[in-house]
């Protein structure tokens, strides 16, 4: 019975999904076509506005001359190192913040203050402290990505079902067993949400940090192309960043659904 209803629901959901996909892609197509036409009929100056066809050409050029790969690998390295550091520090810290009242009381205000500070405004300091190389960028990514993780995991700990703790205690589970069998599974969906938000912030962080000051990376490439009026190349760089962001978000979303399958709403999505 239940299986049947879920199946029907997911069937209508599928139809809706296809419709949304059609509507969404037609708006994008319309936008690209009008943009191209504005360029072809010389309504706009390509020096400032570029055009889809020119962006594609620029994309091919930077792939061919290897500059995309060089810059992308620098940015990827900065991002991945910063992101990994954010997870390694943020995950246990967020959990402790939610789990132990004393830690929440002592570190809570400090975290809140740090979180409210715009990280990019600290960029000049990071450059003074860590130089113009990749270290200062890694720090920006770390500082951008860590807070969504801390906040989400802290919230996760407050959503723990007290009935389950009651059960675990009644069965003589130790504090560590309670943590492992209740706190950890409860935190997983929150961790996945945190990872998605952190990826977005981290990506933003790495690009802005490279635009701000640096000599390599996609952000630098965009900044340099902009200041030399190569609008085609600016768009080509932005496109790369956008595609990376969407891919990352999609992958993490899929992973999150896997960890969320016991919640039972997955089929309906």
């Amino acid at each position: 019975m239940r299986k049947l209803t879920v199946f029907q629901k997911s069937n209508t959901a599928k139809k809706e999904k296809i419709l949304n996909l059609l509507l969404g892609s037609s708006v994008i197509t319309l936008f690209l076509v009008s943009w191209e036409l504005l360029f072809q009929f010389k309504v706009v100056n390509p020096l400032f506005i570029s055009a889809p066809s020119r962006v594609v050409l620029a994309e091919i050029t930077i792939i061919k001359d290897g500059s995309l790969l060089t810059n992308l690998s620098v940015s990827a390295k900065e991002f991945l190192l910063g992101y990994a550091a954010a997870i390694i520090i943020g995950f246990p810290f967020g959990i402790m913040l939610g789990w132990f009242k004393l830690i929440r009381g002592s570190f809570g205000p400090f975290i809140a203050a740090l979180q409210a500070t715009p990280r990019i405004a600290l960029m000049p300091l990071f450059i003074i402290w860590f130089g113009l190389g990749i270290t200062s960028k890694i720090v920006v990514v770390l500082m951008s990505a860590i807070f969504p993780l801390i906040v989400n995991l802290r919230v996760a700990m407050t959503t723990i079902d007290s009935d389950l703790i009651h059960v675990a205690r009644a069965y003589g589970a130790s504090r560590w067993q309670i943590f492992r069998s209740i706190a950890f599974p409860t935190s997983l969906p929150f961790l996945m949400t945190g990872l998605r938000l952190a990826a977005g912030r981290g990506l933003l962080g790495v690009i802005v940090a490279e635009v701000f000051g640096g000599a390599e990376g996609i952000g630098y490439m965009i900044q340099y192309a902009g200041s030399t009026f190569q609008t085609d190349k600016v768009f080509a760089g932005v496109l790369v960043v956008a595609v990376t962001g969407i891919t990352l978000d999609f992958t993490l979303d899929r992973l999150g659904r896997y960890f969320d399958r016991w919640r039972g709403e997955v089929a309906v999505h």
Partner: peptide
């Protein structure tokens, strides 16, 4: 001892 509660309290995951 073992305990059974009114609200089942099964681990949802």
């Amino acid at each position: 001892t073992a305990y059974v509660f009114q609200q089942y309290a099964l681990f949802p995951w």
